[in-house]
Design a protein around this nucleic acid. Structure first.
Lengths: 97, 97
DNA sequence: ACGATAGGCAAGCAGTCACTTGCCTATCAA
DNA sequence: TTGATAGGCAAGTGACTGCTTGCCTATCGT
């Protein structure tokens, strides 16, 4: 639901994670951790990122696929498209949700 | 700042207020209060709404104009248009992974 | 089998947030 | 001026949130 999407976007770290995944889709938890540290200078524990990813996944902004011991994370921009048309009267044609 | 916009949108009551103002622009604080109670069934004090409006105004989502003892609130959708283009590339909804 | 890697679960802590309460200022009408 | 209306300021409180810490499970390579 929309509530989860807005709450997921409320945190700057989660927005960074979305940035990272948009730039490079299908990363694992550890990849995201190291890239957030090296590129964005964020010093966060693995669990912190894991919890953020859980929030993003609950919002539908990130979908995951397991493969062996790896869990890959992909962005899903579909929830974003819906929430903004709430106040922005859209001119463009839509695929309705 | 984008931070303020996301934080402003994080609260369901503030989103309701935006709904109200989109539907009927230029309302005063008391008008918003009564309409939130009657139409949406929200039981909130005047100060609660006032504080929400302050957050929305700080985010640039609401602009105010004083006139005598009245203070009218108008929506400004411009900040909304910017924040979503952060992840929604205007061209492709899909990326050939 | 073993150790190493990738990830998950849960309790605890500190900071933030939404909301209330109480009091104050400013404008208008009589 | 007096009283009523429209709004603002500030402190206090309860709940939520982001993060850490510690321990646990599952998969891979050797």
């Amino acid at each position: 639901m929309a509530e989860d999407v807005f709450k997921a976007l409320a945190d700057p770290t989660r927005r960074r994670i979305l940035d990272e995944l948009v730039e490079r889709d299908g990363q694992t938890l550890f990849e995201i951790c190291t890239r957030l540290v090296t590129k964005h200078g964020l010093g966060l524990s693995r669990q912190a990122i894991s919890q953020h990813l859980a929030v993003l996944e609950a919002a539908g902004l990130v979908v995951t696929r397991r493969q062996g011991r790896y869990k890959f994370h992909d962005v899903n921009t579909e929830p974003l498209e819906r929430i903004v048309t709430r106040w922005l009267r859209p001119d463009p044609p839509e695929k309705t949700s």
